[in-house]
Simulated scan of single mutants.
Amino acid sequence: MQGQRYTGLYFQDELGFFENKLRLTLAGRYTYVRQYYGESADEAKRFTPRLGLSYSIHPSASVYAVYDQAFVPQSASGTIENGGKLKPITGNNTEFGIKNEWFDGNLSTTLSVYRILKNNELTTGPNSTPTNPTSIVLGQKKAQGFEFDARGSIGANLSVVANYAYTDSKVNKVTPGVTSVTVGQVMPGFAKHVINGWLNYKLPVKALNGVGVSMGYTGLLNRATDNWGEGQLRLPDYHKVDGGIFWEGRKMRITANAFNIFDKYLFSGSYYNWLSSYYWQTEAPRNYRLTVTYSF
């Protein structure tokens, strides 16, 4: 039987310099983990720091940098292949970015680049079955990319929430004894390009005071299936459009939304080695929802 017990201690402090234009964040966590394997147990402990630095280059703009380390207990699904032992995830995250506010602070944007390294992460093994679930311990996974985020209002009538993320995630190192994974192999279960957006527009017509329209889009491009097989069929790109109308009063809001407006056949899935076949799970076709909210 496997199990774990862990305790932690966390601290954080922020220092300001040059009339608080330069801000330094210092944080850290001490974690102790005791992992059980039947009658035996392994212990692990680590101090993980977190450093953050930001500088205001303009009253409405700032640049920042963040570095932190990870030490995360994890649990296995079934047995671990090749006799590996369950260890906490270790690694680090490095991020740089710029934040800016527009239109007197009504709209904020963030552009960031990042790199994440993870060691010892468990993932479902390529030979796993429902009756005999197995996991493998990856040597090291590296995810890197950039992200753009915008949210707020543009003028009096238009509000926006938008996000784009580019992610490249690959196996960086392989644990000795694991032969089903190779260095440079794409990590399964993610999309290289993720796009999300939602617009709300209030109609500037007195007779329709409080009435507006909404439109949303979700895109998942260059998706990887959740398997380790080379040359397997990749999931097609995913495009979903939603929309609706709303009325907003002083305390009440009524929203009527339509999801998957173009009634696309949307699905996620993967290839299962033990079945030698694919399994798809479909999403709902075009559907509707009416929501009424009231603020007391």
Rank of each mutant, 00 (worst) to 15 (best):
G152H: 00
A156H: 13
A156E: 15
L158R: 04
S159D: 06
S159E: 06
V160R: 02
V160L: 15
V161C: 06
A162Q: 07
A162W: 05
N163H: 10
N163R: 11
A165F: 09
A165W: 06
T167G: 03
T167C: 07
T167Q: 04
T167E: 02
D168Q: 13
K170H: 12
K170S: 11
N172S: 13
K173E: 15
K173A: 15
P176Y: 10
V178G: 04
V181E: 07
T182D: 14
V183A: 10
G184K: 08
Q185I: 07
V186R: 15
M187Y: 12
A191K: 04
I195N: 08
N196P: 05
L199T: 06
N200P: 02
L203R: 01
P204N: 11
V205D: 06
K206S: 14
K206R: 12
N209T: 10
V211T: 13
V213Y: 06
M215T: 00
L220I: 00
L221I: 12
L221W: 05
D226S: 09
N227C: 02
W228Q: 10
W228H: 07
G231Q: 14
G231N: 15
L233R: 15
R234I: 02
L235H: 05
P236R: 06
D237G: 13
V241H: 02
I245M: 14
I245C: 05
F246R: 03
R250V: 11
R250A: 14
K251D: 08
K251T: 07
K251G: 00
A256I: 10
A258T: 12
